[in-house]
């Protein structure tokens, strides 16, 4: 038997169809002065979305952070070069023995230990490395050189900060030992601002290594995600 089939499913026009993505129905005409203005009750229509925002380039941000940390470490080391490394005070009424990065009171040997030479070299490398890392945020060509320079700068800061810090700490320990062992040996070492700043610079330079290592990893993840989106 043939005949009209039962209307078991509505025709496509029977129900409102969802609009395709990105499609927005035209707004109703704005009432003009021709008629009375009446605000319709109910929920206000959602605001129209703007153009899609580009995702944040986390790798670029990390490079900027690493560069800023390296430059800060370089400035700290440069300032440390001008400050006292340590000072030894005594109760004999003599002037205290003071050692800076470039000179001392002349009690050790005729030529002072010029800590300032490796410190200044490290400061320069830190500053150059920091600037290169910041530039590498925009120029992919210098990324390899910038990362290598930054790693070398962090290594140099670590070596100099570690050795100078150890030297001052060992000298302090020896003076304390002598003071407790020998009566009438009241010498006290005071750590200078140069040593303190050098230690802060050391940790700042090491902190810069973390975003520097993470940046290419996140770049690769971003590139993979972009490729996945294309497919």
């Amino acid at each position: 038997m043939t005949g009209p089939s039962a209307p078991w499913s509505p025709s496509p026009q029977a129900f409102p169809q969802p609009a395709p993505q990105g499609f927005h129905p035209p707004a109703p005409p704005f009432p003009t002065s021709g008629g009375p203005v009446a605000w319709a009750g109910g929920v206000a229509p959602p605001p129209l979305p703007g153009p899609p925002r580009a995702p944040v380039d986390v790798g670029a941000v990390l490079r900027l952070v690493a560069g800023a940390l390296l430059v800060a470490a370089g400035l700290l080391v440069a300032i440390a070069c001008t400050l006292t490394v340590f000072e030894i005070e005594n109760d004999f009424g003599d002037p205290p023995f003071e050692a800076t990065a470039w000179s001392d009171s002349g009690e050790r040997y005729p030529t002072p230990v010029r800590w300032g030479i490796p410190m200044a070299a490290v400061a320069v490398v830190l500053l150059v490395g920091g600037v290169l890392v910041v530039v590498s945020r925009w120029s992919a060509r210098v990324r390899g050189a910038a990362a290598a320079m930054a790693a070398a700068a962090a290594g140099g800061a670590l070596a100099v900060g570690w050795m100078v810090g150890d030297y001052v700490a060992d000298l302090d320990a020896t003076l304390r030992e002598n003071g407790s062992a020998v009566e009438g040996f009241p010498e006290v070492l005071r750590t200078g601002g140069g040593t303190v700043l050098l230690q802060i610079a050391l940790w700042t330079a090491l902190a810069a290594v973390v975003p520097l290592v993470l940046a290419p990893v996140l770049d690769a993840a971003r590139a993979r995600a972009a490729l996945g989106g294309v497919r």
């Binding site: 490796p118 070398a152 800061a157 070596a159 050795m163």
Partner: peptide, 13 residues
Amino acid sequence: AGATGLLAGVTGV
């Protein structure tokens, strides 16, 4: 590069 920086720093000090 990190090792270079370390060794150069040690040598300097």
